[in-house]
Design a protein around this nucleic acid. Structure first.
Lengths: 224, 224
DNA sequence: GTCTATACTACGATAGAC
DNA sequence: GTCTATCGTAGTATAGAC
């Protein structure tokens, strides 16, 4: 849900004078990506956003609510990039390549996206008892995305375009391989000789490498 | 470093009456795997280990020291499983399969291994200013492992057994795919219909799937 | 919506008795 | 090696003025 505040900012200002709310969300996103839920203090978030702690609590009733909203935004961003690729109507073999590229583009867009998606995939929260509404909103986006992957693999197998792989295993492998690369941070960059993973050349190369990796791994006839 | 205490326990008792130290390490490992560095309180660790906070501090001077030692143990366990596969002397194509299996076995051994390895790979610590000795000990194990992967890929390419892939990209892809599967926890199990990822059948299937995935993706002639 | 001030709890860490 | 007691800080969250 985009919330009235953001919409107003979009329609009103030209340089989009970030509302305090979105400023908080951006700062929190960077912090959560780096240190996880428990590693972030709201005082730090507030001052980095140029506000007081109390103001933060005016906008987000609890820390968990803030976290869930941060994760929700990230998932929406990813879905926005990736779902068109799933829906492109091309045959499975080509759709796989489009999805692979869309994943790379989604993660290359913001350095925080991959770490936060990864966290939402494997990290246990101190039982998020947040308002079930938006929490399940975020979770349902995730479920939907995973469902798209599974459907694609199933379709590919049914069409005899893909080998007869295990659908859940393959889904896990694809997601893990794609998200880890852009979540690996310093350690990843060090492997590439300290060149940013997010430079134009690095992203272009990652697209090529990931396409061919998935293509060869899944397709019966990888000569595309 | 195995520490005198553990060695004594090994040589002395038959049922290995866990020293407090190792008990703390085990409890902490489970907590850190689930919630990350910042999400764990030492009070909780101590009482779960049947001890007081002060006793914990008697064994580990700081929280970071405890964390680094937990990570170090995990890395050693992984290295113990995986390095023999790298050193097996078989040609690259077959070595790749052995390494793939060894990775699955390493992660299947303890459910905490993959999450903690993943964390150590992508999570930023509040600058670990721990005694450079053991910290670099842990880091050097990681570097060594990554080096093994890179060497294997390079060798495979040189021997014309592997396609001409990007060495760092491929290393990232392999590690990400392998570790994510066993780190995905509830969400992963849900994809498999709520069957444990660590059951004998699930592990056997994962070995097969991952072998064929890597094999097809990398080898010129995947007809093994 | 933003602030100051505050409540209360938990945190990491230390002192010192046993 | 283990404990109780305590320190100081920072944690999340609230009350209430502006």
């Amino acid at each position: 849900m985009p919330s009235r505040v953001e919409e107003r900012a979009k329609t009103a200002g030209r340089v989009a004078p970030l509302s305090s709310r979105t400023k908080i969300l951006e700062v929190a996103e960077a912090r959560f990506a780096r240190s996880g839920f428990g590693g972030v203090g709201l005082r730090d978030v507030a001052v980095a956003a140029g506000l007081s702690k109390s103001t933060l609590f005016h906008h987000f009733s609890t820390k968990e609510a803030l976290y869930v909203e941060v994760i929700g935004r990230v998932l929406e961003r990813v879905a926005e990039r990736v779902e068109p690729a799933f829906a492109c109507g091309a045959p499975p073999a080509e759709r796989l390549l489009r999805v692979s590229d869309a994943l790379v583009d989604a993660f290359a867009e913001h350095p925080t996206t991959a770490p936060l998606l990864l966290r939402s995939l494997f990290e246990a929260l101190p039982q998020l008892e947040v308002d079930a509404a938006q929490q399940e909103g975020a979770i349902s986006v995730l479920q939907r995305l995973i469902g798209h992957f599974q459907d694609l693999v199933r379709e590919g197998i049914a069409a005899r375009a893909f080998r007869e792989v295990s659908v859940p295993d393959t889904t896990q492998t694809i997601i893990g391989a794609a998200v880890f690369h852009f979540a690996s941070g310093e350690l990843g960059e060090q492997q590439f000789g300290d060149v940013s993973l997010f430079s134009a050349e690095a992203v272009a190369r990652r697209r090529r490498e990931q396409r061919s990796f998935f293509q060869r791994a899944l397709l019966f006839d990888p000569a595309l």
